[in-house]
């Protein structure tokens, strides 16, 4: 799917660049982003304001995006990787520093999102959207405390056999490590033994390990599960019985960030786009579309009414401390996690 989309993009690019060279000196901007993440009206507005046309290509995982860009010849200008892989993109020289003479809206980035560990001082990247990985529960089945990872690691009887767990190795292992009292990316054997045992014994209560569609939660096919906050909110808007919980034992916080590729064919247009999404109004468009926060000051004024004060968006004060930035783990840790994961899913 992604590959054919890629080919299609290349083809449309070839056709466009032929027609554009004569008509439009501004050129084309090629955006490489997660699927179902880019509001079409955002791109339309950018084209209307700058005359730069935008093509959009989807990727489905950080690994896919990294592999494709590493190979070169991709023709993309902007990529939107997650925080945990940003250091790899920077170290390998795949993305270029921001041109602050163009990115004049830089100061719109909320202070707590400027000096981030994965890109100190934001030399390379700007926020696209951020969110949390927590649990979603159908409260018509279970009305107890949902701010705990027990929802999927030790489900209450009412939820047993109805839990869905997303097949994201790093998220699930990390949440199980937090529940066992460890730090993310740990290689501590005692913690990992607990992690393995907890996961293996919890699995009997899971009905599926699927990405779980918003519809499946809304329709009641799945009673509870590990899910992302934005997707949970989309599900709740369809079925008000659904609630989103922040595990007090610890939950991953992630942020996807836009950056300009080093070998971008059109870096000027790319920097303009980076500046464009830092406008509060445009950042709000991104949030309203995917239901995630954006980290841009002043964007609240443009948010849809249902986004304001939504329990999936505003982390309760008591639980803010439990949220921890996800990291990219060492090869050694990943190796062990893959073994545990394979054992779990065998």
């Amino acid at each position: 799917m992604t590959r054919s989309a890629f080919r299609l993009t290349l083809m449309s690019l070839a056709v466009m660049s032929a027609s554009i060279t004569a008509a439009n000196a501004q050129g084309v901007l090629n955006l490489y982003n997660w699927g179902n993440y880019t509001p079409p009206e955002l791109l339309e507005k950018f084209t209307a304001e700058t005359g730069i046309r935008v093509t959009l290509t989807d990727f489905d995982s950080n690994e896919t995006a990294l592999t494709r860009v590493r190979q070169g010849g991709h023709g993309f200008d902007i990529v939107v990787p997650s925080n945990n892989v940003i250091p790899v993109w920077i170290e390998e020289g795949l993305i270029q520093p921001l041109d602050l003479s163009v990115v004049t809206n830089f100061d719109n980035i909320a202070p707590q999102w400027v000096d981030v560990p994965f890109d100190p001082g934001r030399e390379y990247t700007v926020p696209w959207a951020w969110g949390t990985t927590g649990v979603i529960v159908n409260t018509s089945l279970y009305d107890g405390d949902i701010n705990t990872s027990d929802i999927f690691l030790n489900p209450p009887p009412a939820l047993q056999g109805r839990v869905n767990v997303i097949p994201e190795m790093s998220d699930i292992i990390t949440m199980a490590i937090y529940a066992a009292g460890g730090e993310s990316c740990t290689t501590d054997r005692d913690v990992l033994r607990t992690v393995r045992d907890t996961l293996v014994s919890a699995k009997q209560h899971w009905i599926a390990m699927d990405y779980g569609t918003v519809d499946a939660y809304a329709a009641g096919d799945i009673g509870a599960g590990v899910y992302w906050n934005g997707a949970s909110m989309r599900a709740r808007l369809q079925n008000s019985d659904l609630a989103y919980g922040y595990p007090q034992e610890g939950f991953p916080v992630w942020m996807d960030n836009a950056a300009v590729l080093t070998d971008a064919p059109n870096p000027e247009a790319a920097m303009k786009f980076i500046n464009f999404i830092l406008e509060p109004e445009h950042a709000a468009m991104i949030s309203n579309y995917a239901r995630y926060s954006n980290g841009i000051l002043g964007s609240e004024a443009y948010l849809d009414p249902e986004m304001k004060g939504a329990p999936e968006i505003d982390v309760p004060d008591a639980l803010v401390g439990a949220g921890r930035f996800s990291e990219s783990c060492s090869a050694e840790a990943t190796n062990i996690y893959t073994q545990i994961w394979t054992e779990l899913l065998q």
Partner: peptide
């Protein structure tokens, strides 16, 4: 439901 891996999933995972 993907609770049990197939060979294809195992390869994809690596």
């Amino acid at each position: 439901g993907g609770r049990s891996m197939m060979l294809g999933n195992l390869i994809e995972l690596q």
